[in-house]
């Protein structure tokens, strides 16, 4: 494949990141917020996969694939922790609206 194809793929992941960031900034529902974070993170993982497919300087691209797999694992743990927080928040406040969880305010 060509560099042009790589540019297109990178454009896709940039768009995904944009969607994720937009979601992070606008969502007030904690679960939707988590999903937005996942979207943004997957944009990053996709980047590793692209570069594994088009390895620069003639590399094998295996390290990119390995890092992508590790990152998927990270994403899973992150969601696990995130969902645990959602449950705790719901129990504490009776809501999962993050705008109402302002206990850290000075």
């Amino acid at each position: 494949m060509t560099t042009l194809a790589l540019t297109g793929f990178l454009g896709l992941s940039a768009a995904l990141l944009g969607v994720g960031v937009f979601g992070i900034l606008t969502r007030r529902n904690f679960i939707l917020l988590l999903i937005a974070v996942e979207v943004a993170m997957n944009a990053a993982i996709l980047n590793f996969v692209y570069f594994a497919a088009f390895p620069p300087n003639g590399g094998s691209g295996l390290s990119g694939q390995a890092i992508a797999v590790v990152l998927i694992g990270f994403a899973a743990t992150e969601v696990a922790v995130g969902l645990a927080i959602v449950l705790a928040l719901n129990r504490l406040k009776g809501t999962i609206n993050v705008a109402q969880a302002t206990d850290l305010k000075l």
Binding site: V21, L25, R28, L33, V98, A101, D103, L104, L106
Partner: peptide, 17 residues
Amino acid sequence: LRRMQSGVVSDYAAYVI
């Protein structure tokens, strides 16, 4: 400066971004 400390997660996310 302390007014930035709203306690709202989204605001913090905005600062990070």
